[in-house]
Computed example of a mutant assay.
Amino acid sequence: MENDVTMESNMMIDQNIEGKRENLELPFFNLATIATATNNFSSNNKLGEGRFGPVYKGTLIDGQEIAVKRLSHSSGQGVSEFKNEVVLIAKLQHRNLVRLLGCCIEGEENMLIYEYMPNGSLDSFIFDQTRAKALGWSTRFSIICGIAQGLLYLHEDSRLRIIHRDLKASNVLLDSKMSPKISDFGMARIFGGDQTEGNTNRVVGT
């Protein structure tokens, strides 16, 4: 991240990953910067709302477009999902995973700042009769392959073996070239390096 104007510092997050304590260095945005970028979290800038809380479109002072996921104060599982997403996605780098640009933790505010995906989520195309016509078979096949490549990275090729546990059309975002990016790692879980199966103690995801 090169936007020194928009950040105060890099935040070190101490976490236990695979039994080892690690410091994750993550760019930190101040609240004033994000408020300005989103026009003080204007309803006109709201992209949607999920289990975590509302998501806003923003524009930084240098013109870069961002998506801001703001933790809702009434979100029961939000804090744990926020921490989970920070830890996991900060360690992941792949063209088919949404890129985390940084976070904002100030007062009661907890926010994650991502690259903005101009074409929104996959569900907004495939479940809309008009927009679905824009998805020819070659584009659909390319999207399928991109999602599969992202999953292969999570399951086999990343340093952490990760299962997403909430993969659905609304959690696949599309960039300006209709390339898919898997998002929302709040429910994701780390597997051991040689672990191939496991049990979950509660129902999660969709």
Rank of each mutant, 00 (worst) to 15 (best):
F141C: 10
V68P: 05
S176C: 13
N171T: 07
P180E: 13
I89W: 01
S42I: 11
L167G: 09
K69L: 10
R70H: 07
K83A: 10
G53A: 06
F82T: 00
L47C: 12
E106Y: 12
Q64Y: 14
G58A: 01
L154T: 04
A67P: 11
A132W: 00
R189A: 02
E49T: 03
I126L: 10
I190W: 10
L88T: 02
K133M: 13
L60A: 11
I105V: 15
V79Q: 14
Y153T: 03
H164Y: 02
P118S: 15
L154P: 09
G50R: 06
A134I: 00
S43K: 07
L97P: 05
V98F: 05
D128G: 08
E81F: 07
F125Y: 15
I144N: 05
A148E: 09
D184F: 04
K57E: 12
G58Q: 04
D166T: 08
K57W: 12
P180K: 09
K83L: 12
L135S: 10
V68L: 08
A132S: 15
K69T: 06
G78K: 01
S170G: 07
T59Q: 15
N45G: 11
E49Q: 14
L173M: 08
L101T: 04
S158G: 13
D62Y: 02
I163Y: 12
L92Q: 10
E115R: 05
C145F: 00
S170D: 04
S75R: 03
P118E: 14
N96M: 00
D175I: 09
G78Y: 05
L47T: 04
I190F: 07
R131I: 06
L135K: 06
A148D: 00
L122E: 02
E115M: 00
W137I: 09
D175H: 00
G107C: 03
L167E: 11
D62G: 13
S72Y: 05
K133F: 06
I147K: 12
L101Y: 00
S170L: 08
M187W: 01
H155Q: 07
W137N: 05
K46P: 04
T139I: 13
D175P: 11
S72H: 11
A90L: 01
K69C: 10
I143N: 11
D175C: 09
Q64M: 14
Y56N: 10
K91P: 01
G102T: 04
G150K: 01
I190V: 14
E115L: 07
L112R: 08
K181C: 11
S138F: 01
G76N: 02
D175F: 04
E156C: 08
I66L: 05
G63D: 13
I113R: 09
S72A: 13
C145H: 05
K57P: 06
R70T: 02
G186L: 03
L154N: 11
S142H: 14
S183I: 02
R165I: 00
R189F: 00
R51E: 13
S142K: 12
D62C: 11
S75Y: 00
K57M: 10
N45K: 07
E49V: 02
